[in-house]
């Protein structure tokens, strides 16, 4: 299967197999008016199987979303068909408006203009908690 190289854009590589689709949706890539490729279960020497996302447009991507969904994924920035930067994304300390608190007693459940803020509470367990009510984020 061939997917064309991109000229100006990003490649999110080394995504854990099965996480690509979640990442695609959380990054809102379905709304991008440019070529976007989501490749799943691609053979990988390092991971066995991996997912890859290619966006052929110079768009702004929230790296915190990538770090939250799949810390360890890499982001390659492409300009004029050249790799100009390679980033390894770590888990962010804070997530803003990426996920929503599911606690019906949380203030965010009735005041919907509030930012949805989650803080990393346990790095080893990849656990985030709502800033307001400290409810644990639902597992992705």
């Amino acid at each position: 299967m061939n997917v064309d190289s991109i000229r100006d854009g990003i490649v999110i590589d080394h995504i854990t197999a099965g996480c690509g689709r979640k990442l695609y949706h959380l990054l809102g890539l379905e709304n991008v008016d440019a070529p976007v490729a989501l490749l799943t279960n691609v053979a990988s020497a390092k991971l066995g199987r991996k997912d890859i996302i290619k966006v052929d447009a110079d768009i702004s991507v929230d790296f915190n979303v990538i770090g939250y969904v799949d810390p360890g994924a890499t982001v390659n920035i492409i300009r004029n068909s050249e790799l100009v930067e390679k980033k390894r994304i770590d888990m962010p300390e804070t997530l803003v408006n990426v996920i929503a608190c599911k606690n019906p007693r949380c203030i965010t459940s009735c005041e919907q203009e509030l930012d949805q803020v989650f803080r990393l509470s346990n790095r080893a367990k990849k656990e985030y908690r709502c800033l307001y009510c400290e409810t644990k984020a639902a597992v992705l």
Partner: peptide
């Protein structure tokens, strides 16, 4: 005092 959790922080 507020019935919603996190209201005081807001």
């Amino acid at each position: 005092r507020h019935p919603k959790e996190g209201a005081a922080l807001v």
